[in-house]
């Protein structure tokens, strides 16, 4: 009986540590995961739902996360990537086509005029992203949201470091050309 009393106390103590740790983890990675998903999903509500799904999965697996197996960035973005793959399989499409509802950008720190400009540019960027190859789109999304190194991205996608670097350089240049062409239309 004493054993179970001590065990309950230990679990209560661990639970407080887990809540604090998860809270810190959420604060750091939630913006990054949301950005990653926004690169792939233009529908605002869907992006929020998928972001919530990612962190619910992360919550379930949080206690079993092993830092020796993977960096936490790699771990959470692997969950995010798999969540997106599952979504695409369920929705039966591989590219973001829902452009009818543009992603709202927060207005808190920008003037209304700047917010409109950013929204337009974001929409243009989304359309340019659709023209990229799937692997280019994936690498761009991971790079600009998670700020993972090329080596980490390479490990996640099963590519070499140099291959990721080449794809990034090529994709950003294509986006640049398409974006500039879009601007001048």
């Amino acid at each position: 009986m004493i054993f179970f009393i001590l065990l309950s106390a230990a679990i209560e103590k661990v639970s407080k540590l887990t809540a604090e740790a998860f809270s810190g983890f959420y604060e750091e990675y939630m913006p990054k995961v949301f950005k990653y998903i926004c690169y792939r999903i233009s529908n605002k509500h869907l992006a929020e739902d998928l972001t919530a799904a990612v962190f619910e999965k992360a919550l379930v697996k949080f206690d079993t996360y092993n830092a020796k197996k993977a960096a936490i960035t790699t771990w959470v973005f692997a969950i995010a990537r798999n969540t997106l793959i599952d979504h695409y399989r369920a929705a039966d499409h591989e590219k973001t086509t829902e452009l009818d509802e543009a992603l709202d950008l927060p207005q808190e720190s920008k003037t209304p005029e700047q917010a409109v400009i950013d929204e337009e540019q974001w929409t243009m960027l989304q359309k340019c992203m659709l023209k990229l190859a799937p692997n280019e789109r994936e690498i761009i999304s991971l790079k600009f949201s998670s700020q993972m190194t090329n080596r980490q991205i390479a490990g996640m996608l099963g590519l070499s470091d140099s291959n990721v670097g080449v794809i990034l350089y090529r994709a950003i240049r294509r986006l640049r050309d398409d974006f500039q062409g879009w601007q001048y239309e």
């Binding site: 809540a19 998860f22 972001t51």
Partner: peptide, 26 residues
Amino acid sequence: KMADIQPAISTQFQRRLKAGLLKKLE
């Protein structure tokens, strides 16, 4: 430029999601 126009998150959504997750954890 791409880094500048990256979308930020609705603070309301961020807070609501966090509260829900911590409640589930509790």
